[in-house]
Simulated assay, not measured.
Amino acid sequence: MGACDAVVRIDNLVKRYGDLVAVDHLSLSIARGEVFGLLGPNGSGKTTTINCILQLLSYDHGDIQLFGEPMRPTSYQLKRRIGVVPQEVAVFDELTVRENVDSFCALYVGDRALRRELVNDAIAFVGLEKFEGFRPKKLSGGLLRRLNIACGIAHRPELIIMDEPTVAVDPQSRESILSGIERLNAEGATVIYTSHYMEEVERLCSRIMIMDHGRCVASGTADELKGMIGTGEKISVEVGRMDEGILERVRSLDHVRTAETDGGMLRVQCASGAHNLADVLGVLGDAGLAYGRVLSEPPTLNDVFLEITGRALRDEA
């Protein structure tokens, strides 16, 4: 990727808080038109990285360029090309939906006639036309999230940073938000997307980076990330009662990591292998064991995330 193709370019970024290294020599490049997934457990450095991109934090070392130009705290022309949708809903309780969107848009657009058009478009984009006279306290959680998005995109930014935009919303609102992000991208916006909902990331993101301890620990497409780990499919077979000797034969198969019975189901976790399902069913067939439903699930992005970052709980930081 050439420098002119990159909307965001970070080289060797370091951010310390005393002895804590929050971002540790991080480099990344995001191309125009990408939906770029930025993942990591709590305290991995995602939010610190975003705040450095936005110049909300000073940093100890490194270079950040946006749209091919150095990003500085006073780079107001670059900042006008960015939209931010924060995880916490950030709107004014005393203003209506329309007044909120207009207030945020006014930070970037001075012309009132143009701003009126942009506000109309943003409200329509998130489907809040029926609620534009409501104040935020009258809105449901899903409508508040959609208002949050409208405030962040009303000035039609070229780069949109979305931090957990679907937290605590109902399935209908989540689908509306995800479809909206896809439309924004189709209209040319580059998106940085953070979420703990891996199915959203897999649906939206053309490329994904997983951070941990301030570093990039893996990056690529969802399929490329799945290919980096040794986890294979999860196999479930309805078996009824099962002799322990047969279970041990399943466990002894190549590529079988674990095999257990649970409520009449045989559940097998495999490492990567070409014939895992056939091998498991072969053991059952050779033993003369009748079986019912069979389900084979390929590894998910969630499996990749846990394999790379571990399963231990993380505290917020």
Rank of each mutant, 00 (worst) to 15 (best):
Y193C: 03
I192Y: 14
D212N: 13
G188T: 05
I181D: 06
T190A: 06
M211S: 07
A189E: 12
A186H: 13
G214D: 08
G180L: 14
E182I: 03
C205S: 12
I210D: 09
D212H: 10
L184G: 02
T194I: 03
R215W: 00
H196Q: 14
E202I: 01
S179N: 15
S179R: 15
E200L: 00
S176I: 14
I192W: 13
S179H: 13
A186Q: 15
E182V: 01
E200I: 00
G180M: 14
Y193K: 02
R207A: 05
T194M: 07
E200M: 00
G180T: 09
I177R: 06
R215T: 02
C205K: 12
S195G: 05
Y197I: 13
M198A: 04
I192S: 07
E200F: 03
I181S: 01
V201M: 04
I181G: 00
D212W: 06
D212P: 06
E200P: 02
T190W: 08
G214L: 04
R207N: 11
L178E: 02
E199H: 14
S195W: 07
L184A: 06
N185G: 07
G214N: 06
C205V: 10
M211C: 10
T190R: 02
A186D: 14
A189W: 10
R203P: 02
H196N: 11
L204I: 07
S206P: 10
S179W: 01
N185K: 09
S176N: 14
R183E: 15
I210F: 12
E187H: 10
A189R: 02
I210M: 09
V191H: 09
Y197H: 14
R183S: 12
R203S: 05
S206R: 12
T194P: 04
S195Q: 07
M198N: 07
E202V: 00
E187S: 04
E182P: 02
H213D: 11
L184N: 02
M198T: 03
C205F: 12
E200A: 04
E182L: 13
Y197T: 05
I210V: 09
A186T: 04
G214F: 08
I177C: 01
N185R: 11
L184T: 01
I181A: 05
A186E: 15
E202G: 01
Y193G: 03
